[in-house]
């Protein structure tokens, strides 16, 4: 944990125009899985202001190395080696320390290691596809993996997912809980994907595209992509009316 005092303010209202709406018929599964009624909007209570925070002791040595964390000793995953790094901040630009990030992805051929996966691309015996890390005091994180392949999926007759890495993020309040996907700069398939297009605003989509970062590329080893993540910000509690015991 950081030395900063824990914050206890209510969260900024979530901008639901910036996020994808629940009902996006071009992404067919959303049709029967989207609530139809209005959400009940309330200012955060203690139940959302608080949240689980995880310690670095949770992590194993290879948790942030997808090239090796499933591989046999002395072997490694097949594919283009990359470093993904960035910073987790909140909407005020304040770094979020001790944020747990979990990620999962297809292998270099676009195949997931999963019972329900049916794509004919081969499994890589040395690639599991999961990893995790926790941000440092200033909110920075990094991990190593291979660049995932694009893959087809049953939605339209010929829909393909652009190369992407799934991210699950814990901030400090349960209201900050977020799952999203990271895409790669320069991939034309981003703009053809019904899941990407569930996000109405082009600028919001661009927020999910990691930039190729030549400065942090490791010569003769791995290219780097930079992906910053923004979680909900909080109001200061300084002038809030708080009754005894709250």
């Amino acid at each position: 944990m950081s030395n900063r005092k824990p914050e206890t303010g209510a969260f900024f209202q979530r901008d639901r125009q910036w996020h994808p709406p629940a009902y996006t018929p071009d992404y067919k599964t959303s049709v029967v899985r989207s609530p139809q009624r209005a959400l009940l909007s309330l200012d955060s209570t203690l139940s959302e202001i608080t949240g689980p925070v995880f310690g670095h002791s949770l992590l194993g040595e290879l948790d942030d190395d997808l090239i090796h964390n499933f591989a046999k000793p002395g072997e490694s995953a097949i594919g283009q080696r990359i470093i993904v790094h960035g910073r987790v901040v909140d909407e005020r630009g304040v770094g979020v320390a001790s944020a747990l990030l979990e990620f999962w992805q297809a292998n270099a051929g676009g195949r997931y290691r999963h019972k329900r996966e049916g794509y004919l691309a081969p499994l890589d015996p040395n690639f599991g596809g999961c990893g995790r890390t926790i941000t440092d005091e200033d909110g920075y994180y990094r991990f190593r993996t291979v660049k995932p392949g694009a893959y087809p999926w049953p939605n339209g007759v010929n829909d393909w997912r652009p190369a992407h890495i799934h991210f699950s993020v814990f901030g400090h309040g349960f209201a900050q809980r977020l799952i999203t996907q990271m895409y790669f700069e320069g991939d034309p398939m981003i703009w053809q994907c019904p899941i990407v297009k569930s996000i109405p605003d082009k600028a919001a989509i661009e927020q999910l595209i990691a930039a190729l970062d030549r400065q942090n590329t490791i010569p003769m080893d791995a290219r780097a992509y930079k992906f910053d993540i923004v979680l909900r910000g909080r109001r200061s509690t300084l002038f809030e009316n708080r009754l005894e015991g709250n």
């Binding site: 959303s30 499933f70 630009g93 999962w104 997931y112 290691r113 329900r116 999961c130 799934h166 799952i179």
Partner: peptide
């Protein structure tokens, strides 16, 4: 100077690989 929250995307069919890998057989 406020930033925009990172937009959400669906967890997809393979969320278990990342969040409960042992359950998914990894």
């Amino acid at each position: 100077g406020f930033l925009k929250e990172t937009p959400s995307q669906t967890a997809g069919p393979y969320v278990h690989i990342g969040c409960t890998p042992n359950f998914s057989g990894i």
